[in-house]
């Protein structure tokens, strides 16, 4: 799809993930939540792909599918040349060290009964044959890398602040030298002054270790800062994907335009001058998405064809993809 000679590190094609809805005494399946409904993208080595969208649009599900934390319904996920969509058991387990995840809530993703040292060394326990000394020195190395003092290794998660806990989560994700990391809203739970620290750390690590990120967030300005390319998602589908600069300066899809205009500017002089597109209503339920283009119920520019036919996902510029009938 992307006409590049370079082989992408992650190649996702027509990914679908539906969660069944059961009802009644017999637990008959009465429908499905189409959390991810046909998504294709590439992520190249060393790059950051930003994934933005409103809550409930399926961003996190995409991240989890790509890491095979779910058994996906259909589609293909190729990581570093190997198809992992249908891997199972020991084969999948052998692939796990290459792909890791940093979670949103640094409070919930750390076991409160384990010390920081044992949290960070747990992946080493599971996947590597290392002696105790080797593990200890690796943990110390990792703690240095994320800016935690080594002497904290014997403390428990509750003794740390939110930003520091997120650093523990990052150290754990790095333990097995992964190539690809899914960052699922890693800064959403942090204060503004701490967010910048964590984002800078993620960037430094990427430079040093050549990491590839899928960065999921609803903070559009942070994604602009961090991502090389950005995908915008709505109700289980991508509506637009473009290099970061292009997407923010020249958004083509009406949803992207509305989303960008809704971000409040931290500058009162600018705030008055923005032509804000206010979307009416809420995101429809992914269990019963609207026909045709799923966005047509809220789209300020919807025309008749939008209600009937789903727009095709196609290239509309240099590395710029979109799905909308209105884009020429």
């Amino acid at each position: 799809m992307l006409d590049s000679a370079e082989e992408p590190l992650v190649r996702v094609r027509d990914l679908k993930m539906h969660f069944p809805i059961y009802k009644g005494l017999m637990k008959r399946q009465v429908g499905a939540v189409k959390a991810v409904d046909g998504i294709s993208f590439d992520i190249f080595e060393g790059e950051t792909l930003g994934l933005v969208g409103e809550s409930g649009c399926g961003k996190s599900t995409v991240g989890r599918c790509v890491l095979r934390l779910y058994d996906i319904l259909s589609g293909s996920v190729v990581l570093d040349g190997q198809e992992i969509a249908d891997l199972n058991g020991p084969d999948l387990r052998a692939k796990r060290p290459e792909m890791q995840m940093i979670f949103q809530d640094p409070q919930a993703c750390l076991n409160p009964r384990m010390t920081v040292g044992s949290i960070i060394s747990e992946p080493l326990f599971e996947h590597k044959k290392m002696t105790k000394e080797e593990r200890r020195s690796k943990v110390a190395e990792l703690m240095d890398a994320v800016g935690l003092a080594r002497r904290f290794a014997d403390r428990y998660p509750h003794e740390f602040s939110g930003g520091q806990r997120q650093r523990i989560g990052i150290a754990r994700a790095l333990a097995l030298n992964p190539k690809f990391i899914v960052c699922d809203e890693p800064i959403a739970a942090l204060d503004v002054s701490i967010q910048a620290q964590v984002v800078n750390l993620l960037e430094d690590l990427q430079d040093k270790l050549g990491l590839t990120y899928l960065f999921i967030s609803h903070d559009l300005s942070m994604v602009r800062h961090l991502a090389d390319r950005v995908a915008v998602m709505y109700l289980g589908r991508f509506v637009e994907l473009a290099p970061s600069e292009t997407l923010y300066t020249n958004p083509q899809h009406p949803y992207t335009q509305a989303l960008l205009s809704a971000v409040p500017h931290p500058d009162p002089a600018q705030a008055g001058g923005v032509d804000r597109i206010i979307l009416k209503g809420d995101v429809p339920s992914p269990a019963a998405p609207p026909t045709g283009c799923t966005f047509h119920t809220r789209c300020p520019r919807a025309i008749d064809i939008c209600k009937k036919d789903a727009p095709e996902w196609r290239q509309i510029g240099d590395g710029h993809f979109g799905a909308c009938h209105l884009i020429d």
Binding site: S193, I194, A196, N200, M222, Y248
Partner: peptide
């Protein structure tokens, strides 16, 4: 001042690195 500096911008030049406020509250 530091708070305003740490915010990434929606327009204009993209900063190489975010300014951060060191330390903890």
């Amino acid at each position: 001042r530091a708070l305003l500096e740490t915010l990434p911008q929606m327009g204009g030049e993209r900063a190489q690195r975010l300014r951060s406020i060191d330390g903890q509250p």
